[in-house]
Design a protein around this nucleic acid. Structure first.
Lengths: 120, 120
DNA sequence: GTAATCTGTAACCGAATGGTTACGGATCAG
DNA sequence: CTGATCCGTAACCATTCGGTTACAGATTAC
């Protein structure tokens, strides 16, 4: 076996970070906790839309929320991203290794011996 | 500024890897190039469904394809994942640093001085 | 040539997604 | 108490998504 045989990684975070707006929200929260209104003010979409994104982020574990008076403070909780990182890690060798670059080179002159590289 | 100020990262790969089936397809391709039929055979969903997933993966740049006789060989192209990795990297400090763990500890006894940590 | 095989796509369908406007609950200001 | 403010959710809508079955184009086998 060429690569590590690991169970399929699944986590709601994968879905959560697939949306550009949600990623932008997370990016903003890297500067510190923010209230719902303040977050929404920095986006073109409506406030309820942001609220729904925040809900998704909370449900995926990427953001925590707690009340403070009449406002609610949202805060980044990055730990679930570790799952994504873990999945990604298994691919790093395919873009970072010398072998990967060698492969790229060989592919520039089609050998036609494709499936020889790994068939179970 | 606490964190690096970077342009919002966007790439079709984020959407592509949000689906569990597509991630499983990529996982399989780590063992080497495979034909469409062989890939489909290892999934419960129908062959056309796998075809559509493969198309999405090709369009996102995560998979390359070339014909060989009457079959088509799909091959992993991991480089776009570097974009995802780059975005993720900006969050590593939030789950890996000593500061992050200190924050976690402090949060276990609500101080109420939330937004003091970073307001522009 | 003809039949079997490998493959992608069209047509269709139900469910989920991402957005909107309208509303109501809770809290602060006066 | 009353009005303004902050906020989440309900209801609705168009679009996308992920799946299916049916079909058609190429290539191989005989």
């Amino acid at each position: 076996m060429v690569t590590d045989q690991t169970k399929p990684v699944d986590h709601p975070a994968f879905r959560a970070i697939s949306d550009p707006t949600r990623r932008a929200i997370l990016d903003g929260l890297r500067d510190g906790p923010r209230t719902s209104g303040r977050i929404a003010a920095s986006f073109l979409v409506s406030r309820p839309a942001v609220c729904k994104h925040l809900k998704i982020l909370v449900n995926s574990g990427l953001v925590r929320v707690h009340k403070r008076g009449r406002e609610r403070v949202y805060e980044l909780e990055a730990r679930p991203l570790e799952k994504v990182e873990g999945w990604l890690e298994q691919y790093r060798q395919f873009w970072a290794s010398r072998l990967a670059r060698l492969k790229d080179y060989l592919e520039s002159e089609q050998t036609g011996a494709d499936e020889l590289k790994g068939n179970s």
